[in-house]
Design a protein around this nucleic acid. Structure first.
Length: 789
RNA sequence: GCCGCGGUGGCGGAACUGGCAGACGCACAGGACUCAAAAUCCUGCGAGAGCAAUCUCAUGAGGGUUCGACUCCCUCCCGCGGCACCA
């Protein structure tokens, strides 16, 4: 009989909630604290398969750690501000706040249906004023230190979402959220100086226990390159043009220079450039192109010579022409290059197209030439400062005030949080202004700045109307979990010390160069500001593991338009939460960037397994506690014990590695064996404990049916006996010339001489060897013997 | 183009530190139970040859090291991911 998953699962979820067994105290005597974290979800409205994969599988790990007597913090919350929620609300013509909080209520229920061991008393919602007060507070700390600043720069503008985006949110020239092609605009925006931390973000990776591919992705994003800055004089002028090059050793081969079309020096030479009209035209054209267009036009080079001016190659004093071309980018290096067509593919192409000279001069000592021409060694990073202001409603208001007299001022700490006002029209606008700009009452304030005489300025002022990017909210949420209700601080130093740093952080690969990079930066900056206790170090996550993605049954990414979306609720209804979570864990190794198609048949295998676990304990067919005289034992009793202890070892080690699939396979093998030869009640209890993290409801039900009063989840994780695992015999593989020809059971401690004579007495071996003598014998204890003839 | 990860049956995937390739599960085939079906249980299941014991081939391709290679080295092909006219 299959078990009644609906009844059982509901019953225990209620029971756990009542008893609060997953509540994590700050400290427990004699227990070590362990912080395991999963990325909190957007309240998008419905829990999908990806959420199940993201939450219920790492829950196995959290549960096992708890059974290992660790004081495990496994918190959850909602990343509730930001575009996804807001866009969905607008689409449905609902107020974003109402929409978000209704979704949270619904999704909270859905998440609870997983039977995950989250501590809900630590729940954090980033759109709660109690939370974003501290987002604003931290922002102001960065502002005080000059790490948050406002500046006019070229930024990415998404015409559909009508807001600026950070570089990290532009993927292949398109908006990461809606896929619209972004355009470049010059706008005054708030930015965070993440570039100040480029080197530490890079070098900090070394000591982290992260997979190579995750580290590499961050390294590529930061994009360090070492080179030199060298000044080129402009003939008949005092101006110099600074170039950045990673190959100063090729300086003698520089036959021309190229400036980015946006280079500020161009206008200085207006009077000397004879073809200025043509130059201007080129600049205008270049500005019109989007990032994507510049990329799309492949490697077809365009450019215009600045006629009438020449530069001097500082190495050989030769006069060289100056060009402008859009293959040189203003945003990188100095926005100017020395072109060495003999050594650089792009320069080569350009010079071929425009008939510029190509000379192949011998290379020269790097360091020496830089010194000789008065250049200096510099390091460049690809990383740009993080644009955090958004022209959108649903976010934390940036807590500053613009006064006519005092200019831009921080909102005093006592006035935090700056509450997000309720407004009627929260739709984004085309003019680059936030919808908050229309909230007149909220907008106009008296300047609160204290003047030197102690008086408040009191002048006419306006609030900043942009809101903060969601990624700012999520850059510190893991700290709030440590002290979620604290009204006096974002988290006390004491509480931070009890749980930070995060022991294991599990999440999606898509966050590698966004959230993961941002939050590392935040933590480092907060560390420097003394907000994070020194002894914790400046890295928030000791270990990071990325999960793969679950595809539709057709092997394609799930999407409504393809009609291949799997609704987890449907499967929970049919088979139960235990089956769904265990199936997801069984699909393949979790800690890999792979992708697994959902197999509608495959889930049946897990369902069958759990039904068999149930059946083995039901009175009729039970072999529990019975020495089972009817089923003749194929294996001696000690072999079941051996398998049991091997399984304890394997399941434990596999969970640590996130190899849940092989752990489950080991449990299946053990069950198969116990069905065959029976098991004592005690042994079965051990099996149940091993299964408990995977199927928390079913195991709890059986555990209580077996007469236990406590929860199985508060039991101690079984220990294996190393002596029991040791085999007394092994199967000796007999190879002849490296090919397996025979195998037989031999004592574990057998010597080479014994093994040789035993093997040579085997009929099979005799018949193959004939009268040939082995020229060499290789004996590997506990494994094989190989005769070379 | 640079960097990283990977390529194993019909499918998802196993395989210690170089030592029986294909654990476990799905699918499939045959059988038991049943009036019948579902469910369940048992057996088989990489390819080829053979009545069979067994033999040969086989981990993307080709070479190498080794008594022995999915595993190490070289060359190449393919897939996925990051970066990319970044000087």
């Amino acid at each position: 009989m299959p078990y009644d998953h609906k009844k059982i699962e509901k019953k225990w979820q209620k029971e756990w909630e009542k008893s609060g067994i997953y509540k994590t105290p700050d400290e427990v005597k004699g227990k070590e604290n362990f912080y395991t974290l999963v990325e909190f979800p957007y309240p998008s409205g419905n829990l999908h398969t990806g959420h199940w994969y993201a939450f219920s599988v790492p829950d196995i790990f959290a549960r096992k750690k708890r059974m290992e007597r660790k004081n495990v913090m496994f918190p959850i919350g909602f990343d509730a501000f930001g575009l996804p929620a807001e866009n969905a609300a607008i689409q449905r013509k609902i107020n974003p706040k109402k929409w978000t909080y209704e979704n949270i209520d619904y999704m909270r229920k859905q998440i609870k249906s997983m039977g995950a061991s989250f501590d809900w008393t630590r729940e954090v919602i980033t759109s709660d004023p109690e939370y974003y007060k501290w987002t604003q507070w931290i922002f102001l700390k960065l502002f005080e230190k000059g790490l948050a600043y406002q500046a006019e720069t070229p930024v990415n503008w998404c015409p559909k979402d009508k807001t600026v985006l950070a570089n990290e949110q532009v993927v292949g020239g398109k908006c990461e959220r809606c896929g619209t092609e972004v355009v470049q605009k010059n706008m005054k925006q708030w930015m965070l100086k993440i570039t100040d931390y480029a080197e530490r973000l890079l070098s900090g990776l070394d000591k982290l226990n992260w997979k190579e591919e995750i580290k590499e992705a961050q390294k590529n994003w930061i994009g360090k390159s070492e080179g030199a800055e060298i000044d080129f004089e402009v003939k008949n002028s005092k101006e110099k043009i600074k170039v950045f090059t990673t190959r100063p050793d090729t300086l003698f081969g520089a036959t021309y220079m190229v400036l980015a079309p946006e280079h500020p020096l161009i206008s200085n030479f207006k009077s000397q450039i004879s073809n200025f009209k043509e130059v201007e035209k080129y600049i205008t054209e270049a500005k019109k192109k989007t990032q994507l267009q510049r990329q799309k036009e492949e490697k077809e080079k365009t450019g215009v010579e600045l006629k009438g001016i020449k530069a001097i190659n500082p190495a050989n004093k030769e006069e060289i022409p100056i060009w402008i071309a859009d293959y040189v980018l203003m945003g990188y290096g100095t926005g100017a290059i020395m072109a060495v067509p003999a050594h650089d593919e792009r320069d080569f192409e350009f010079s071929k197209k425009f008939n510029l000279p190509i000379v192949d001069r011998p290379l020269i000592d790097k360091d020496e030439i830089v010194k000789k021409v008065g250049g200096k060694k510099v390091i460049q990073y690809r990383l740009r400062d993080w644009v955090v202001s958004r022209q959108r409603y649903w976010g934390a208001p940036i807590p500053v005030i613009h006064c006519e007299k005092c200019l831009t001022q921080a909102v005093p700490e006592k006035d935090l949080p700056v509450l997000l006002p309720e407004i009627k029209d929260y739709k984004p606008r085309d003019d680059g202004k936030s919808p908050l700009a229309k909230a007149e009452k909220w907008l106009k304030v008296k300047c609160p700045t204290r003047l030197p005489d102690g008086q408040e300025c009191g002048g006419n002022a306006e609030r900043e109307t942009d809101t903060l990017d969601t990624f700012v909210d999520s850059s510190w949420y893991f700290l709030r979990y440590c002290d979620p209700k604290n009204p006096k601080a974002f988290a006390s130093a004491e509480k931070l010390k009890t749980f930070m740093p995060v022991g294991l952080y599990s999440g999606g690969a898509e966050h590698t160069t966004m959230h993961l990079l941002y939050s590392r930066f935040f933590y480092k900056a907060m560390f420097d500001l003394g907000l994070v206790p020194k002894e914790l170090g400046d890295e928030p996550y000791l270990e990071r593991r990325n999960r793969g993605i679950i595809l539709g049954p057709d092997g394609q990414k799930m999407s409504k338009s393809k009609g291949n979306v799997i609704d987890p609720d449907e499967y929970v209804e049919k088979f139960g939460a235990d089956t769904v979570r265990m199936y997801l864990a069984f699909l393949g190794p979790y800690n890999e960037a792979g992708s697994y198609p959902w197999n509608q048949q495959g889930i049946l295998g897990i369902k069958r397994f759990l039904d068999r676990v149930w059946k083995i304990t039901s009175p009729r067919s039970s072999t529990l506690g019975v020495e089972s005289p009817k089923t003749p034992s194929v294996f001696p009793r000690s072999d079941v014990a051996r398998l049991l202890h091997k399984t304890i070892k394997k399941v434990g080690e596999d969970i640590e590695k996130f190899s849940f699939n092989t752990a489950i396979s080991a449990l299946m093998i053990l069950l198969n064996e116990m069905e065959k030869v029976g098991a004592s009640a005690e042994d079965f209890g051990v099996f149940l404990k091993l299964l408990a993290p995977f199927a928390p409801h079913l195991t709890e039900e059986i555990w209580s049916k077996l007469g236990n009063k406590n929860s199985i989840h508060t039991e101690e994780w079984p220990k294996y006996d190393p002596k029991l695992i040791e085999e007394t015999t092994f199967e000796l593989i007999v190879q002849i010339n490296g090919k397996v020809r025979d195998k037989f059971e031999a004592p574990a401690g057998i010597s080479e001489a014994e093994a040789t004579s035993l093997t040579l007495s085997r009929e099979k071996v005799k018949s193959i060897l004939g009268d040939k003598k082995p020229s060499k014998i290789i004996f590997i204890p506990r494994r094989l013997i190989n005769f070379v003839i």
